[in-house]
Amino acid sequence: MFKYIIKRLLGMIVVMFFVSVVVFFFIHLLPGDPAQVIAGPEATDADIQNIRISLGLDKSLFYQYCHFITNLLSLNLGTSISYDKPVWDILEKRYPVSLTLACCSLWFIPVGILIGVLSAVYKNKFIDYMAMTFAISGISIPDFWLGLLLMIVFSSELGWFNSTGYDSLKDMVLPAITLGTIGTAIIARFTRSAFLDILSENYINTARAKGLRETQVIWKHSFKNAVLPIITVVGLQVGGLMGGSIVVERIFSLPGLGSLLLDAVNSRDYPIIQVLLLLYSFHFIVINFMVDVLYIVINPQIRLK
């Protein structure tokens, strides 16, 4: 078992390395001289030269990459151009907002699984049709539109929630519904098909023939076997939460990493863009890794080897 985990860990480090190379080269992919781009159109030649030296752009690419990585590892994330503050200080304030939003949105896991199981158990019945109509709509609805509709109904018409800003956890309700919907839909669809595969297995017939109660057949015999493929999809969706939060933060004007990224893109604040690209992708990679490990730990075929 540990052999597998270590193999995955090494694989993760390799991908992280490549991601860091891509993000590092990001600034060199910009059209024109990066120092010029960062300095902006009104900068003098001396300003540009200063930026070039302070960012090490006058050195070789290899040296620059090593410099970039050492800085990252020592948590020296550079200075934001537009805020004129260390990137770290900005992240400290923004990060908890995004993290809270992601955590509040985790409701989609139990709800999605429950909808999927009900749908499989009542296959081709009314519940199934309702659930699958919801699911296909959930993956097709634009998240930004859903967010706006929720705002129109629950903030403007009913006045239950604030429409924008973040003062208390209550302000996370509508964003969390918006962000979790697509995950619910995807998990429901997947759980249904995973369950249908298992419900047609012989050991389920045996369990029923033994006279076990249906709830026991479903939650004990079937769920245990369906949980492995479901975990993979859940993991992907949890990883996707960070990406989805970019849009949701913008809709509800939440001061998190997503709105920071969008502002940085608009103001061409490349140090922030670089750090955020890395941060988002590392989240994604680490979550996928944890899912892989969980998979290994739960799966007796691998665990008991």
Partner: peptide, 19 residues
């Protein structure tokens, strides 16, 4: 492909548009 998959797609799109 692995590296491209390591970015959530909307993030990758934002990154590319930023460049």
């Amino acid at each position: 492909a692995d590296v491209l998959f390591a970015f959530p797609s909307i993030l990758l799109a934002i990154g590319i548009v930023a460049v």
